[in-house]
Write a protein that binds this DNA or RNA. Structure first.
Lengths: 231, 231
DNA sequence: ACCTGAACACCGTTCAAGT
DNA sequence: ACCTGAACACCGTTCAAGT
């Protein structure tokens, strides 16, 4: 059957920056950041690798774009609440986004180290966060401190060293449990206590969501105290 | 001039795991994590690439080893002080280590996501930190919370989104200053205030060391308050 | 038994040749 | 003018051939 000349060679949906970034995010969600390559993104889109460079100038710029896609997934600030619950809600929304994209902290860390300035969407997000603090009566100098205190928690992650990593293969250098307990007695005691804590989720060891909110609230309470002393 | 057969072909200092890790850390210190490749480490050591695999089973295992080298640079815990200043000193020592190796957070983040367990040296470090909290009278459950609250600050970094990055080339997508100020009014106000703050270091914008300690102390004060309420 | 060169299966990106 | 195949300069790691 004959088709209109030229039409058959084109992809059904024309390539666009949005489609490239979408495919990249999907690839990273599936296979982690190691699975992300220009060639594989192209393959997923049914396109020759060089075609991507029309919509993205380099892999680094692609990573920046992916960060902005993620920041776009964070809920806009709530209207008509106090600063504390507005910040709290927003941070928890950022955290939900992050749980969908576990590769994000690593990419954000890497790109932030390389860039002179956060990406545009990140600037917008930070600007709005600063606006919430200001609206809550924070003097500008205290806002500055607050940003440092919140650190990466503003984006929903706290760079845990000890995350639950279910389903991961045991490390090749892992020690037997008894030897672990002998060498790291305090960690062993901690693991024991957490495992028997009725508050924590059964099987998973510790309730990450609870702990995240606990740390977030401690931080916010500290800032609230500073605000009271300042005014 | 004749030399003893075989002697001339050997490197003056025989290769060892320590030498491999040392060369890798030095390479990362110089050129960042992107400059780190097995081939380049081998070149720096005057050795064929495959020779490294005698002392290191893979690049990932090399990265783990590098992390342990860094953790080894953190000062041992101070004796005979209260928990608060012991933790504080140790964290500030970790931060000094980190300032010598700016690539560390990215590598730690990446490896921690990939491994089931922190590296052995990191476990030792965390165990000792837990020991300090315990020695200070913290109930084990509160130690658990404390670790989550401290998060990455235990290792001296707080994953700042807005670090000073002097000497970095301006981003290709950077906006002119006036447009920046218009689009991000709250950040502009903040930048202005920080620039005029007599407390901050001239030229650098904000005093990172001061802000780090400020955030650290706020966190430690929060934990101290929890401890008082618990006992 | 040890060591290592060549090879394999990838990368990101340039560039010139095609339409 | 646009698109793209081949090529370039790299990767980490396997493996077989050398000693």
């Amino acid at each position: 059957m004959a088709t209109q000349a030229g039409a058959v060679a084109q992809p059904r949906v024309p390539l666009s920056r949005t489609r490239v970034l979408g495919a990249a995010v999907a690839l990273a969600d599936e296979g982690g950041v190691d699975a992300l390559s220009m060639r594989r993104i192209a393959q997923a889109l049914g396109v020759v690798p060089m075609a991507l460079y029309k919509h993205v100038t380099s892999k680094n710029e692609l990573l920046d774009g992916m960060i902005d896609v993620l920041v776009g997934e964070i809920d806009p600030p709530a209207e008509g609440t106090d600063w504390k619950s507005a910040i709290r809600r927003r941070v928890l929304s950022a955290r939900r986004m992050l749980l969908r994209h576990p590769w994000a902290p690593e990419v954000i860390e890497a790109r932030m180290k390389a860039r002179a300035t956060p990406t545009p969407a990140l600037l917008e997000y930070l600007d709005s966060m600063v606006g919430i603090f200001r609206g809550g009566g924070f003097p500008i100098g205290l806002v500055h401190h607050a940003l440092h205190v919140m650190g990466s928690r503003l984006l929903g992650f706290s760079q845990e060293l000890f995350e639950d990593r279910p389903g991961r293969a045991p490390d090749t250098d892992a020690l037997p449990a008894e030897e672990m307990a002998a060498r790291f007695p305090h960690l062993a005691e901690l693991a024991m206590a957490v495992a028997h804590d009725p508050e924590s989720v059964v099987g998973s060891g510790c309730d990450d969501q609870f702990e995240f909110e606990f740390a977030l609230d401690l931080t916010l309470d500290g800032l609230e105290r500073l605000l009271r002393n300042a005014s």
